[in-house]
Nucleic acid binder design. Structure first.
Ligand SMILES: [Mn+2]
Ligand SMILES: [Mn+2]
Ligand SMILES: [Zn+2]
Ligand SMILES: [Zn+2]
Lengths: 139, 139
DNA sequence: ATTGCTATTGATAAAAGTTGCAATAAGGAG
DNA sequence: CTCCTTATTGCAACTTTTATCAATAGCAAT
């Protein structure tokens, strides 16, 4: 977690504060990859942190661009440290995951922007489909 | 709801049953457009239906392709009757929505399929961005 | 019309997620 | 180091969603 001092400065510049709660959630995500709020709570509650604080902190850090949110497809969310942009491709059948480089969507997004006038920030999309194994198994 | 007899036959052919609960949820969505489980419950609970039944029925109908699910971006889901395929584009700032024709993504999806081997079913995606109004207002 | 199988529901409890508010503590100023 | 402002937290009530299980009722067959 070499980035902590920089993150602290960023937050303070925006009028926010660095706290032990925020630090331990960042640490948990540093170790854990993609985690749900419940998984994060399991890993930090021994410090006395409340569920409410976990949910608020995740929303706060995501709102400040420090975390990325991913839709898990069932209406539940997963959080991860923001790093290189990427999307997800999940197998509906077995849950296997792949990362998708944003470049693959670039021209489609440009097209959508010119058609709609929106400025699209396609941060962290989730696509669903059938992986190769599940395709052959089902046919 | 002229499609009810056909839907009933489809379900029975799969070993399932048509029930008054399923009918009134379909009716609510026929009138309502995109609705959350809570909104649907408000519209059907006078019939004595439970929340549990609302959630189960929505999941069941979506699993059978009769409803489509849309991620609302906040970890909550919205349901609608499956009709023509489309995606959503939502303004992060004001919530304004636009529909996206699937054709705009077709070539990107073909590219992802050939790179990953997955067979992608991009049923009902949600993109986020800033609408034109919110762009000009913020700068 | 009756029967039997079992998919579906309601009731209930548990889990996950949200909200309002008073107490706490981060961190800038003196 | 001490004081002060106010962002942040814990607490507790509340809403939303999921899971279990016995009772109900769709519907196919007779
Ligand atoms: Mn990710
Ligand atoms: Mn839709
Ligand atoms: Zn698979
Ligand atoms: Zn807008």
């Amino acid at each position: 977690m070499s980035c902590i001092p920089q993150l602290t400065r960023t937050l303070r510049a925006r009028g926010y504060r660095m706290t032990p709660q925020r630090l331990s959630i960042l640490q948990a995500l540093h170790d854990g990859g993609h985690l749900s709020p419940t998984q994060i709570y399991e890993r930090v509650h021994q410090t006395g942190m409340t569920e409410a604080t976990v949910y608020r902190t995740l929303e706060f850090l995501a709102g400040n661009g420090i975390l990325s949110v991913a839709d898990r497809g069932n209406g539940h969310l997963a959080y991860e440290l923001s790093s290189e942009a990427h999307h997800h491709l999940i197998c509906r059948n077995c849950g296997a995951q792949m990362a998708i480089e944003p470049a693959m969507l670039a021209s489609a997004i440009r097209l959508m922007e010119s058609k709609t006038g929106y400025q699209i920030s396609a941060g962290h999309l989730t696509f669903f489909g059938l992986c190769q194994d599940c395709q052959s198994r089902s046919q």
